[in-house]
């Protein structure tokens, strides 16, 4: 299938929007009318055709514009992409996984020819044609993680496994929900999750870590995480919080539909074969309230979730200033009818 890539922005004039097809395939994260943290991990197996789960790496209509935004972020702040020196094998592992997945699943857009260590990669949407030697950094314009990270939607971090722990020792992170790679690099699973409320006490991170330490090659897993963002801004980094934080005060009853976005992260976890590290992908999907309520079930469910969200999560996700205004706007789409279990549209 040939994807029609949109030309849009995630900053300044914020022209991002979803096509009706993109709305239908949005990974709405709530399977019931309430939400709390849990160890929501499931096998990352192929899902229905056309869904965001169809392929392990999902490329969609926002691809080209998202890659342009990533380029702008990296230009302004190269620290968003960092790898500790012992992560080079893992970087090649990541490049292999992404190139082989993308070329296999989107042959119209990407192709990969492998002749031993001599690889030939073609990325048509971005106009890239690169021959290189797998394992030889000098044959690529960037280190492998950055090279492929600049060509794949989603943020990525790579975790080394040592001493019964995972260590975030590399990453390319330009679309983060308010956390800093530069600050967190080198931390372990409990440390980088330090700022998350309630989940530590509930044992969520103990169980999740135990599970991940046993993650097998060839059996990736996934989970969904979510927050909300004002304006379709991909770069909601703490680095730039002093620039975008004020957006949160601009929500009015008139602009909720266009300004307020549900932001969902489809997170994939793969054991990488040579390095025994774990690749973590954070694939971000955004949807405007106006778009979301075109699916009646979602329009009913989201206000119910927001109204009953534990106060610690409201605070952590930064919703405090605009939750009530958003709820008021959304409430006209909730007629009180029961909703069916499961995330998808009815």
């Amino acid at each position: 299938m040939v994807i029609a890539f949109k030309n849009e922005t995630f900053r300044d004039d914020f022209t991002f929007s979803n096509s009706p097809a993109a709305i239908r395939r949005f990974p709405f994260p709530f399977h019931e009318d309430k939400y709390m943290y849990s160890v929501n991990i499931e096998p990352h197996v192929p899902g229905p055709k056309g869904s965001v789960y169809e392929f392990p790496i999902d490329i969609d209509e926002h691809y080209v514009s998202e890659m342009r935004d990533r380029e702008l972020v990296l230009k302004a702040d190269p620290g968003r992409c960092q790898a500790l020196p012992h992560m080079m094998t893992a970087q090649w592992d990541m490049l292999e996984l992404l190139m082989t997945s993308m070329a296999r699943d989107y042959p119209e857009h990407f192709s990969l020819t492998q002749d031993g260590d001599r690889w030939h990669w073609i990325n048509r949407p971005l106009g890239i044609d690169q021959k290189f030697t797998f394992g030889d950094v000098k044959t690529l314009p960037y280190e492998p993680m950055e090279y492929i990270g600049r060509q794949c939607q989603g943020d990525f971090s790579i975790q080394d496994q040592r001493d019964g722990q995972l260590w975030m020792d590399a990453g390319i992170i330009t679309t983060q929900a308010d956390w800093s790679l530069d600050f967190d690099i080198g931390m372990n699973f409990f440390e980088w999750h330090g700022p998350v409320p309630l989940a530590h006490q509930a044992g969520v991170f103990d169980r999740a870590l135990k599970f991940l330490l046993n993650l097998q090659h060839g059996r990736p897993v996934r989970r969904l995480n979510w927050t909300m963002t004002i304006n379709p801004r991909l770069d909601t980094s703490p680095e730039n919080y002093h620039k975008w934080g004020v957006d949160r005060t601009t929500v009015t009853p008139e602009n909720v539909g266009d300004k307020v976005h549900l932001r969902v992260e489809l997170q994939g976890l793969w054991r990488l074969p040579r390095s025994n590290t774990i690749l973590f992908s954070i694939r971000c999907y955004m949807i405007k309230m106006r778009e979301l309520v075109t699916v009646p079930k979602w329009g009913r469910r989201l206000p119910r979730v927001l109204r009953t969200l534990p106060p610690e999560l409201v605070d952590y996700k930064g919703l405090t200033r605009y939750r009530d205004t958003t709820l008021e706007w959304l409430s006209k789409y909730d007629d009180g009818a029961p909703t069916t279990l499961g995330c998808g549209p009815d």
Binding site: S180, F183, D184, I185, G186, M187, E191, G194, P195, P238, Y241, H242, K243, W244, G245, V246, R248, T249, R321
Partner: peptide, 22 residues
């Protein structure tokens, strides 16, 4: 000043306190 601490930087994290309302 948050309690979030980086061993690599030997420092706590400081985040603009009034970004949302200067």
């Amino acid at each position: 000043v948050r309690d979030h601490y980086s061993r690599r930087l030997a420092a706590f994290q400081g985040v603009c306190i009034n970004a949302e309302d200067p």
